[in-house]
Simulated scan of single mutants.
Amino acid sequence: MPDPYLPPIRQPVRTIGRQRFDFSRQIVVMGIVNRTPDSFYDQGRTYALDRAVDAALAAAAAGAGWVDVGGVPFSPDTPEVGESEELDRVLPVVTAVAAASDIVISVDTFRPAVAAAAIAAGAAVVNDTTGLHHPELADVVAGSQATVVVTHSRAEPRRPFPRPTYADVVSEVKSFLADRVQLALDHGVPEERIVIDPGHDLNKNTLHTLELTRRLSEIADLGLPLLAAVSNKDFVGESTGLAKADRGAPSIAAATACALAGSRLWRMHDVGSAVAAARLVEAVLGLQVPTDLRHNMS
């Protein structure tokens, strides 16, 4: 049986924050900390500051390489959060986690001022789920040592986008990401500090997201590390009939499918299970040697 096709990453070895990654050899799990009372999955479980910090440090202890801290939900169905309130939610978490751990801290924001303040506080990644809707955010990243995650989404930040349509969702997502990566480059962000995310479920229905997952290698062909943010999302629930609380196993299956097509970053709620799954997938793909070879070896 031939080896699976793994799209090459042009610059796989990256120093991000205080960590060094080789995306040609490893799958990195990003834990999720929502400092919001109305996130789609945890519904405020980590809204309190101490719980947010504890969750980030627990993700690090469970093997996450990154932790993504967000103060504003993507969904437009939640109350508006102003810039000042977003800063109040995010910055104390970044400061506390940066003081206690070497884990890479990513901040989920589309606002340039929030990104700048978070980087100054210790964040090493800006995770922009609006695809650089505000080009000034690229300027902020270019003027720092931070990495930016460029995500496909079509709506203005926190605005409805009902009944999205695509002639070919994969080619359109790929074209969008290529354009936005070029925008980042034009603003001075070096390629080795850019990650891409096809935006599972973001301004897409379940059929779009499943098609995107099946053909994800076409997106990975852009040659940049690719983040798969699939954990507990609606396409997982609509494909399985499972409630949010029961989507852990199919979320790992979705992440595994993405890894087989070239994704090297997983954004996951259940870090421990995801890290264990990532280690097995690395072994299957031949990226890493198994840690303990004893079975039928003597």
Results as ranks from 00 to 15, higher is better:
residue 84 S to C: 09
residue 148 V to H: 05
residue 32 I to P: 00
residue 113 A to C: 12
residue 251 S to T: 05
residue 99 A to Y: 01
residue 132 L to D: 04
residue 285 L to T: 13
residue 59 A to W: 04
residue 202 L to T: 15
residue 89 R to G: 01
residue 218 E to Y: 02
residue 63 G to S: 07
residue 217 S to Q: 07
residue 264 R to L: 04
residue 75 S to L: 01
residue 74 F to V: 05
residue 25 R to V: 07
residue 7 P to M: 07
residue 44 G to M: 13
residue 204 K to L: 05
residue 289 V to I: 15
residue 271 V to F: 02
residue 200 H to R: 15
residue 8 P to R: 14
residue 90 V to P: 15
residue 73 P to H: 14
residue 289 V to M: 08
residue 252 I to E: 13
residue 110 F to Y: 14
residue 155 A to D: 03
residue 54 D to F: 08
residue 180 R to H: 11
residue 239 S to Q: 07
residue 14 R to Q: 04
residue 200 H to K: 09
residue 203 N to L: 05
residue 25 R to I: 04
residue 113 A to M: 12
residue 163 R to G: 15
residue 17 G to C: 07
residue 159 R to G: 01
residue 143 G to T: 03
residue 231 S to F: 02
residue 237 G to H: 06
residue 170 V to M: 12
residue 36 T to P: 15
residue 229 A to T: 00
residue 233 K to A: 05
residue 45 R to D: 03
residue 244 K to Q: 14
residue 112 P to T: 05
residue 6 L to N: 11
residue 199 G to V: 00
residue 207 L to F: 14
residue 34 N to F: 09
residue 127 N to K: 10
residue 296 N to L: 15
residue 260 L to H: 14
residue 128 D to L: 08
residue 167 A to I: 13
residue 124 A to L: 08
residue 27 I to F: 00
residue 291 T to M: 08
residue 185 L to P: 03
residue 287 L to A: 06
residue 133 H to Y: 13
residue 268 M to D: 00
residue 287 L to C: 01
residue 238 E to G: 08
residue 40 F to P: 02
residue 286 G to S: 11
residue 18 R to L: 11
residue 119 I to E: 05
residue 82 G to R: 06
residue 35 R to Y: 12
residue 176 F to V: 13
residue 141 V to M: 03
residue 8 P to I: 02
residue 250 P to D: 14
residue 12 P to E: 03
residue 83 E to P: 15
residue 166 Y to P: 09
residue 157 P to F: 12
residue 257 A to N: 09
residue 207 L to V: 12
residue 256 T to M: 10
residue 172 E to C: 13
residue 17 G to Q: 07
residue 78 T to A: 07
residue 209 T to N: 04
residue 52 A to L: 10
residue 34 N to H: 03
residue 239 S to A: 14
residue 140 V to P: 07
residue 66 W to C: 04
residue 179 D to S: 10
residue 290 P to Q: 04
residue 111 R to A: 02
residue 126 V to C: 06
residue 87 L to I: 09
residue 29 V to K: 01
